[in-house]
């Protein structure tokens, strides 16, 4: 009896060990097939863009392509800045102060991608005079914050810096 029990235990151990090794092996083989779909080195390499902003008049904006996505660079007017700053944070679905979203209050730099399903919102449209996404009707304010519609969050702020007064480096 004693002998038999010992035997089964050893069997169990061997089974578990071989299943484990098998599972790890299969996982290790599958992973390259899954990971090949993730962004490759050449895609990751295109990670920064420098933009000349000296020609942008107040109230105007330009759109540049960064990592295949549009980035809005908007030179805001006094009234737009004021409007963005005076909003009561409790009214916002995704509360963020305007000051947290800009480096210089005159310049709003953000991803021009609706946080709902990725369309490019239209400038100077919608109920909050910021942006309006025509795809499913999301309204953004002059700070690019979501105010109304299906989008869950404010438009994203990419990593950027002012290289000098006339140039912005995104990424």
């Amino acid at each position: 009896m004693d002998k038999l029990e010992k035997k089964t235990n050893r069997r169990d151990f061997l089974f578990t060990a071989s299943y484990t090794v098998g599972a790890v092996g299969i996982g290790a083989v599958i992973w390259p097939f899954v990971d090949q779909m993730n962004p490759d080195r050449s895609v990751k390499a295109l990670a920064t863009t420098e933009v000349d902003i000296s020609q942008i008049e107040p109230g105007k904006s330009i759109t540049v392509l960064w990592r295949g996505k549009p980035v809005f660079i908007k030179r805001r007017t006094e009234s737009e800045i004021l409007e963005a700053q005076k909003v009561n944070l409790n009214e916002l679905p995704h509360p963020e102060k305007d000051e947290e979203r800009v480096k210089k209050s005159e310049w709003l730099v953000m991803l021009g991608v609706c946080t709902h399903l990725g369309c490019v919102p239209l400038a100077d449209k919608g109920e909050y005079k910021g942006w309006f996404c025509p795809c499913h009707g999301s309204h953004y304010d002059t700070s690019g914050r979501i105010r109304k519609g299906p989008a869950p969050t404010n438009m994203e702020i990419p990593k950027y810096e002012f290289v000098n007064n006339n140039t912005i480096k995104i990424g």
Binding site: V34, M37, N38, P39, D40, V43, R67, G68, K69, V113, G118
Partner: peptide, 13 residues
């Protein structure tokens, strides 16, 4: 989504 796209937006990959 990044995995589906193979990048940061819909593109060649």
């Amino acid at each position: 989504t990044t995995w589906l796209w193979g990048g940061y937006s819909v593109d060649n990959p």
